[in-house]
Design a protein around this nucleic acid. Structure first.
Lengths: 166, 166
DNA sequence: TTGAACTTCCAAATAATATTGAAAGATTTC
DNA sequence: GAAATCTTTCAATATTATTTGGAAGTTCAA
């Protein structure tokens, strides 16, 4: 496969993949583009290569910086800002995991913790409390596992273990 | 908190949570409703309780059955079908994981496997191939971990280990 | 075979989300 | 300090996803 075609496929696929996971298509595409660019790109570069507007490019670049997936680069003698993606896939996975854990999982755990204390003793209430309890238990465990496995001081271990278990 | 309020909060939250994860709001809400219903519900029940149309209720019930999260129940002497959610949260998590793995992760692994063989030796091509390779490696590993941890014959072990590690 | 009771399908309507582009805001240079 | 260059904002617009509701399909009992 030729580079041009492969690049395009990758960007499209990453965009589609992202939108299945609640990340908007453009944000995922900008990320894909930066992931495979050996050099940092300017806003203009991103606009051109993906055919998107300035506003869109800007908004998504900022969002990626917010997620710690992209760094702003200042080149000496250049007025413009450049953008470069984190290239270490373990770090990428860690950052995405931690961000989503914080934004989505933690609030859910908190809510379930409250809900499992609902008052009442009817058949219906009991079923509800049981489910809230079980889900709270499950989500807390998942939260704990993710917390441990994304702590930077255990990354080296996971990487190693994963290789050994191959 | 009263049951009515708690139920409502749960359904809304599960719906919002779902839509952040690429599952449409109604499907997640129907699932939430069934999760906390001690008895199996009919299509009419779902329509009424969630204020959604027949078509919508039907479509999402079918989708949930497809995902193995809901079972069709036939009551003797009743013409209608009833629907009941799987209540074991470990099974729920397993079914969701396997389904998404199959639908989303596996195709991505396959694509990356192809892309990492792109031809060329330029600076740009090398960066591309490197990233495709690394991502392929990462996603395959994740796939392997999920495959093992959702095999029904190791569920008992995970459940036990998770309790010990609490 | 008919009709009642359901389920499913699908085109049109609606709602939610993402994108554009022009204008305003910053920052740097001369 | 004002022109040039770049970034950010946001209301309008476009796109995409979801939902509706009526029509067609299915199943079953009599």
């Amino acid at each position: 496969m030729e580079l041009h075609e492969a690049k395009d496929k990758f960007i499209q696929a990453w965009g589609a993949f992202g939108s299945q996971w609640g990340i908007n298509r453009s944000m995922a595409q900008v990320h894909a583009l930066l992931l495979i660019s050996p050099e940092a790109l300017s806003t203009e570069d991103v606009m051109e290569q993906l055919n998107i507007s300035r506003g869109n490019a800007n908004m998504n670049l900022r969002a990626l910086i917010d997620w710690n997936l992209v760094d702003r680069i200042l080149k000496t003698g250049e007025r413009r800002e450049f953008f470069q993606a984190e290239k270490d896939v373990w770090k990428i996975a860690t950052h995405i995991t931690r961000e989503r854990k914080k934004r989505e999982l933690e609030p859910m755990v908190r809510l379930l913790g409250e809900l499992k204390q609902t008052s009442g003793t009817t058949h219906e209430t009991k079923a509800f409390k049981q489910m809230a309890h079980d889900l709270h238990d499950l989500t807390s465990r998942i939260d704990a596992v993710l917390e441990r496995s994304t702590r930077s001081d255990v990354q080296w271990f996971l990487k190693a273990a994963s290789t050994l278990l191959r």
